[in-house]
Design a binder for these strands. Structure first.
Length: 153
DNA sequence: GCCAACGTTGGC
DNA sequence: GCCAACGTTGGC
């Protein structure tokens, strides 16, 4: 099983949006970065788990856990003229953008903040913390995953 | 709101 | 294929 970290801006789509759905399941739509797409398309497998990360907000950090419940399939918002994620270069024959489906597993009582993560020597090689990293989807090692879970309270 | 870092676009 | 211009991300 692989582990991941997936960013979203809570003003656009936060963990509560996912939690409130009856199925607690949704598509991770709108990724428009090739490296992030490739992680979803090529490496994310059924039952992988992912941290839900809130970015560009008051306390950036990890707020909970999701499970991958459907592997890569075309992101049709790229074909939707009315979508903010519309991409004229995507076509039904060649959809270009992909997404996975995720299911809510857990919301942490407290956000595990980016500023806390940065202080942990155990995480000094974590992709999220690499200088200049802006990728919205990054891999998490099993050790990093377990360590971060130990920070929960 | 600022701005550094990075990605993408498109002329040449 | 180079690279300048531009757009986006996201912490602060």
């Amino acid at each position: 099983m692989n582990y991941w970290l997936m960013k979203s801006e809570p003003t656009t789509y936060g963990i509560d949006n996912l939690f409130k759905l009856p199925s607690r399941t949704d598509h991770w739509e709108g990724v428009r970065n090739y490296q992030a797409r490739n992680f979803m398309r090529d490496n994310m497998k059924l039952h992988d788990q992912a941290f839900f990360y809130h970015s560009n907000c008051e306390i950036p950090g990890i707020v909970g856990i999701m499970e991958i419940v459907r592997e890569s399939h075309p992101d049709l918002t790229a074909l939707d003229l009315n979508s903010q994620y519309y991409d004229p270069k995507s076509t039904p024959e060649n959809p270009r953008w992909a997404m996975v489906s995720v299911r809510f597993l857990e919301k942490f009582k407290n956000t595990i903040s980016l500023s806390l993560l940065k202080t942990c020597s155990e995480l000094q090689n974590m992709t999220l913390l690499k200088p200049g990293n802006r990728l919205s989807i990054t891999p998490v090692t099993e050790k990093e995953w377990a360590f971060i879970l130990s920070l929960k309270n």
